[in-house]
């Protein structure tokens, strides 16, 4: 039931995704602030399908040359492509402190035993500025293969970006900057090079009192 209703292709399903800041309070406790978060969901057949977005509407927000979104989408499979609109929670006090930990955690599951590669490209005005590539091996748990990217440190570029964004006095200014800030995550089978998931992330700042929010869309080409 999750296919078409959550971030899942026929080969890989995203279970959880978060970018966070841990701030120590004292030697034994810390505060965890979630900038963005996709929690576990268990859609059923009675749930509606995700809305769709024509991938051509966002081509220019992501790398367009070799290995860009167009080439990836044309290669397929199309059921692996998603757009996530995040409303990021920036309602925290940031200080420069080396004891703070900025991290990203994500989890995936598959019915297949494989090695996955996750490429995360941060883009400014559609051009890649930094890329992180991670390789994960499967762990067999409860009848399925689990992949965990646990507490991957956020890069310096992203930490500086968050700090600069926080220093802007008005939310509309932050949103204006975020209009040209995107992230493209491509999860690939390391051995076959098949695209397992391709997720395009775009952002606004949350105005909610309930923290980070998101909408998920299927990317299509009608």
């Amino acid at each position: 039931p999750w296919q078409g209703r959550s971030i899942a292709s026929s080969k890989l399903r995203m279970l959880e995704f978060s970018a966070f800041l841990e701030q120590p309070q004292d030697p034994e406790t810390f505060n965890k602030h979630l900038f963005v978060h996709i929690g576990q969901s268990n859609p059923s057949y009675s749930d509606p399908y995700l809305e769709s977005v024509d991938v051509r509407q966002i081509y220019d927000k992501f790398p367009e040359k070799k290995g860009g979104l167009k080439e990836l989408f044309d290669k397929g499979p199309h059921n692996a492509f998603f757009l996530v609109k995040f409303w990021a929670d920036l309602s925290l006090n940031l200080q420069d402190d080396s004891s703070f930990f900025y991290g990203v955690s994500s989890q995936y599951e598959s019915s297949e035993n494989m090695v996955i590669t996750s490429s995360t490209k941060v883009c400014s005005f559609g051009k890649q500025v930094v890329e992180k590539v991670e390789t994960e091996y499967a762990r067999f748990e409860n009848g399925r293969y689990m992949f965990r990217i646990h507490r991957s440190p956020l890069c310096e570029y992203m930490i500086n970006f968050i700090h600069k964004l926080k220093h802007l006095p008005e939310k509309y200014m932050m949103n204006s900057v975020l209009e040209n800030f995107t992230i493209l995550q491509v999860v690939t089978n390391r051995d076959t090079l098949e695209t397992l998931l391709c997720i395009a992330y775009v952002f606004e700042v949350s105005t909610s009192e309930h923290g980070a929010q998101h909408h998920i869309y299927r990317l299509v080409k009608d």
Binding site: D60, E179, Q213, H215, Y217
Partner: peptide
């Protein structure tokens, strides 16, 4: 690209794209 420099607000996107969920 034909859509280059076009503000996101002027693109063909679902209405929900601009509606922040109010979930707890």
């Amino acid at each position: 690209s034909a859509v280059e420099q076009v503000p996101m607000r002027k693109r063909l996107l679902p209405a929900s794209f601009w509606e922040e969920p109010k979930l707890t």
